[in-house]
């Protein structure tokens, strides 16, 4: 049995998005961390957007986040029509960056700004998405 490393170098020859989504596909969520300024960033890039360092590694963050703002979509378009009503949120990760996600497995009326949430994964179509659910549930 192999253990998942806690840190891997960002491969300069690989599209960071490809790494990110491939790893989500096996339920692993990675953020980029800068070896120079020690900040985290999302979305992943080929350089640190804070200090322009190229010394980036992938690290596994805590998976804890807080809802910054959210909206319940009632009129989905295309493939999303079947999912309505669903909650689109911006969550602030404990490590600092903000990401867009869905808050799942909760009555949309219970979602509020400041709600503490934790990472989970949801398969949708041919892709596994990093989503968030109410912490402790």
């Amino acid at each position: 049995m192999t253990t998942t490393p806690v840190e891997v170098d960002v491969d300069p020859l690989e599209d960071p998005a490809a790494f990110f989504w491939r790893e989500c596909g096996r339920s692993a969520f990675w953020l980029q961390h800068c070896g120079d300024c020690e900040k985290w960033q999302y979305y992943p890039r080929h350089l640190c957007s804070h200090c322009w360092s190229r010394k980036l590694t992938w690290r596994r963050p805590s998976g804890l986040a807080v809802v910054e703002t959210f909206s319940v979509v009632h009129r989905g378009s295309g493939a999303f029509a079947d999912l309505t009503p669903y909650t689109v949120a911006l969550v602030r990760l404990a490590e600092g960056p903000t990401m867009m996600t869905n808050i799942v497995d909760v009555d949309p009326d219970r979602v509020e700004i400041g709600l503490e949430v934790q990472l989970d994964f949801a398969r949708r179509g041919d892709r596994v998405l990093p989503v968030f659910r109410v912490r402790g549930r």
Binding site: Y42, Y43, S71, V73, V88, M99, N102, L129
Partner: peptide
């Protein structure tokens, strides 16, 4: 953003 936002289904009004 096609890679990190569209997958979560925001509408323009969202």
């Amino acid at each position: 953003d096609q890679t990190y936002e569209r997958p979560f289904g925001p509408l323009i009004p969202t």
